[in-house]
């Protein structure tokens, strides 16, 4: 994940970037590269997944959905929310307190929520022909849904207007409280019920049950969606930065306007 270097750039700290509103040339080059890489690898995954790989013995053509779903789920459940939790902790830690981490957490959660929704939708589309139902109250489905609601709450809390550091601290605590709950939710729902098939992908050894070209397609799908995620994260981070900058500018302008009034009177 060296691709998130731009947000960590110290010059962007505390909303005082040295560059113009479009960002530095290096940032634009990084974004361009990431975007092209993401689009090409995602396209390749679709091509391999739908046309090249053979149908599965047990699942038939439905196995093709399995090239997409784990990548989306990996990004949503581990990468995005792990990053958000880490960034929130770094904000709360006094030595590393910086709005950089707050913006990173906000970006990761927002993109993560979109990926989580996609996880649920793609899983549901796979579950309909496989299990015969759109939704099953199975452990991983349910805990993913709870996670989605938890982080929708985080986004709702962020929407309440406040001074940047107040909002940052409040959101970081909310992320912390929710993140602590995730393993408990996981186990409670796991014991509550389970019928989902075991994790096929993230086993330590790439499972022998998967055919060669299938394994590569699966891996490519994960890489492709990770790159897509990185691109979205950087763009979303820039949006947060520009929003803060616009807010500060408008405040300055309002103050100037009041001063001018005072001077005229």
């Amino acid at each position: 994940m060296t691709t998130i270097a731009p947000p960590a750039d110290p010059r962007l700290a505390e909303g005082a970037p040295a560059t113009g509103p479009d960002g530095s040339a290096r940032l634009r080059a990084t974004l361009w590269t990431l975007g092209v890489l993401g689009a090409v690898s995602t396209g390749a995954t679709v091509w391999l997944g739908i046309w090249v790989t053979p149908p599965d013995k047990v699942q038939g053509n439905l196995v093709r959905l399995v090239y997409l779903h784990p990548g989306v789920a990996w990004v949503a459940l581990y990468l995005a929310f792990g990053l958000a939790a880490l960034a929130s902790l770094l904000y709360l830690w006094p030595r590393t307190r910086s709005l950089v981490w707050d913006r990173l957490a906000a970006a990761a959660v927002e993109v993560g929520v979109v990926f989580t929704a996609c996880t649920l939708i793609s899983g549901s589309i796979w579950g309909r022909p496989t299990w015969g139902v759109w939704w099953a109250w199975d452990a991983r489905l349910t805990s993913t849904a709870v996670l989605l609601v938890l982080f929708l709450g985080y986004l709702a809390l962020r929407r309440v207007p406040a001074e940047p550091h107040v909002r940052a601290r409040r959101s970081a605590f909310a992320a912390l409280f929710a993140a602590v709950d995730v393993p408990i939710v996981h186990f409670s729902v796991l014991w509550w019920r389970t019928l989902h098939q075991g994790a096929t992908v993230l086993n330590p050894t790439l499972s022998p049950e998967i055919h060669g070209s299938m394994a590569w397609t699966l891996l490519l799908g994960i890489v492709a969606l990770t790159v897509d995620f990185a691109w979205m994260l950087v763009v979303r981070y820039r949006i947060g930065l520009l929003e803060d900058r616009l807010g500060a500018e408008e405040l300055d302008r309002a103050i100037d306007a009041r001063r001018a009034e005072g001077g005229a009177a």
Partner: peptide, 26 residues
């Protein structure tokens, strides 16, 4: 196979629309 096509197009469609909206917002 219909489910496969639907799955790919809906999932990637959502991601694509989100990405485009991000670009416009930025």
């Amino acid at each position: 196979m219909n489910y496969v096509v639907a799955g790919y197009s809906i999932t990637l469609g959502i991601l694509f629309v989100y990405a485009v909206s991000l670009g416009f917002r930025r």
